[in-house]
């Protein structure tokens, strides 16, 4: 069985601020790490590997330094890795990103099972998994909270539907996105770090892909545009209310209604 896990390198902090004076994004203290939600995806794959002997490949799209997180996945037990990297991928929105990853996966090999994290901490869209499945013409199940059974033909999972959970069986090849909390991701192993430190990570660029048309990648391949970025209205400026208990309660009830909680 072949499993591929999609992972992403994200800023180490989600607290990016706009300088109120200049309007420029403040960049202090931005380091990088593996998207925390992806750890659950890698762990899910490694657990299936331990159970079935599956081979686990991790793949990412990003700048060359994103190979750091692929190394990290090796230390968790991944067998192979691939990085899709090209300046021409810059400025990609969800559609162009999903398309790029789909092209990359087609190049590497379409596995039996693709696992994605629930979402990333920098984009927070939760859309790349489903779009990727569409571009590969395979079914997907999102919000997976438990792996129930893995056979050589299908995977049975528990899917969170809000007020209920559904137990669904899906035939390979297919894609799942896993919820945070599906398992407890293991820490990188020092032994594996030593064993994999010289492992080569193949890089794939646009020229390696089946579709080499630049119009389908990066900003050109992105139907959405960011018109502007701005700071939210400064509601962090605190409102202070004083008055009698009666007045204060009245104001509070009014505010709760305005915020649609009452």
């Amino acid at each position: 069985m072949e499993i591929l896990v999609c992972i992403k390198q994200v800023p180490g902090t989600s607290e990016v601020e706009v300088d109120p004076e200049t309007g420029v994004l403040k960049r202090e203290g931005i380091d990088s790490k593996m998207n925390p939600y992806d750890l659950y995806g890698v762990e899910t794959a490694i657990r299936i590997k331990e159970q079935t002997g599956a081979r686990v490949t991790v793949a990412s799209m990003g700048p060359p330094q994103a190979s750091e997180i692929l190394q990290e996945a090796f230390m968790m037990g991944a067998d192979e890795a691939a990085l899709f990297t090209d300046r021409k991928f810059a400025g990609a929105d969800v559609l162009a990103t999903s398309y790029t990853i789909a092209q990359g996966i087609k190049k590497v090999n379409i596995p039996d099972l693709i696992i994605c994290g629930k979402q990333t901490t920098d984009g927070d869209t939760a859309q790349v998994g489903p779009e990727l499945a569409e571009f590969l013409s395979i079914p997907h199940v999102a919000n997976v909270t438990k792996i129930i059974e893995v056979t050589d033909k299908a995977i049975t999972v528990e899917m969170d539907m809000g007020h209920s959970v559904e137990i669904v069986e899906m035939l390979y090849p297919c894609l799942i996105t896993v919820e945070k909390g599906i398992n407890v991701p293991r820490l990188p192993s020092f032994k594996l770090k030593l064993a994999t430190k010289n492992k080569k990570i193949p890089f794939y660029s646009l020229s390696d892909f089946e579709d080499k048309n630049e119009k389908n990648y990066g900003l050109n391949g992105s139907p959405t545009r960011v018109l502007r970025i701005f700071s939210p209205e400064a509601n962090s400026d605190r409102e202070t209310w004083t008055g009698s208990g009666e007045e204060l309660t009245g104001k509070l009830v009014k505010k709760l209604k305005e915020l649609k909680f009452a």
């Binding site: 929105d93 969800v94 559609l95 859309q127 790349v128 569409e134 199940v141 809000g162 992105s222 139907p223």
Partner: peptide, 23 residues
């Protein structure tokens, strides 16, 4: 922006190669 909507909308957006903005 439910579990259903967040699973279906991207799939359809990709099929029509069009834009989708989450949440």
């Amino acid at each position: 922006g439910t579990n259903v909507g967040r699973s279906l909308a991207p799939r359809v957006a990709a099929r029509f190669r069009t834009g989708l903005t989450a949440d």
